[in-house]
Amino acid sequence: MFEVRFHGRGGQGAVMAAQALASAAFSEGNYAVAFPYFGAERRGAPVLAFTRVDSKKIYRKTQVYEPDFVVVLDDSLLEMVDVTEGLKDGGVVVVNTRKKPEELALGENIKVATVDATGVALEVLGQPITNSSILGAFAKATGAVSMDAIEKGIMDIFGNKIGMKIAEKNCRAAKAAYDRTISADGRPREKEFEKKPKWLPDVKELPIGGAGVKMETNAGMIGPGSFLENKTGGWRTFMPIVENDKCVACQLCWYFCPEGCITMVPYDNNRFKKGIAIDLDYCKGCGICAHECPTHAIEMKR
């Protein structure tokens, strides 16, 4: 039996990757199950999905707590989530990153494999959706399933859902990622992963009227405006680069930003505002500002 945990962000397709892996293992004559972890996730928020594969019928229905393999679809998650939590000795972590495996310090007695799946996906699919590419990397790094089986799995799951043509494209992405995957032995972590404490409210602690009063707890701020604690900048694939010389202070980007993370730089000689500043702690990289800017002063770059 082997168990896999997928760490992704909503919209990257971690659930479909888990299903395609299960389908791949099934095509090799195994029993396999795949299931997501449900929460109130939106696109970009961290999500989990699991695959469990065995040669015998599977009766275990729990989430995967001690995975053999971990797949990370977005390297910005490495700082937010303890991806190696419960990972067995000799396990493999497959990470989508532009870094080399030697650069990642995720722990001893494990193998680390890396691939620039986002780059592959942008090249082959034209979209930063990395779930198919990462499966190619998984096959190369773990050897738990063959590349042929992965292709079958992708054709099965993707083909049914989004059509055969796009499924074939995804197979090409997986193969490209297979060729570009490199592995190395894991390095010990430089410092232990700090798990954020959970805030469990006490009746005495909870202000009357729920979270109507802003208050500090051991897990951070709660109450009005406390979402500011939630730094959504990590969701970003593309980053806005601003050329303030071109800015005519029309304030359209400032208006259209869904996050409200753009601020106008104050008045210069009481005439124009000088330009804008983007708070990258919150910018999700949607690109509306760049698309709406009348003078093309903003450009989205990876």
């Binding site: 970009g44 928020a45 979402f227 604690e229 959504t232 930003c257 702690d281 999700k284 690109g287």
Partner: peptide, 19 residues
């Protein structure tokens, strides 16, 4: 300049409702 609906909310990137 002040937002009464602050950043850090978890809408999808590019959400029209958030704007």
């Amino acid at each position: 300049e002040e937002n009464l609906f602050t950043a850090g909310h978890t809408a999808c990137a590019g959400c029209g409702a958030a704007i």
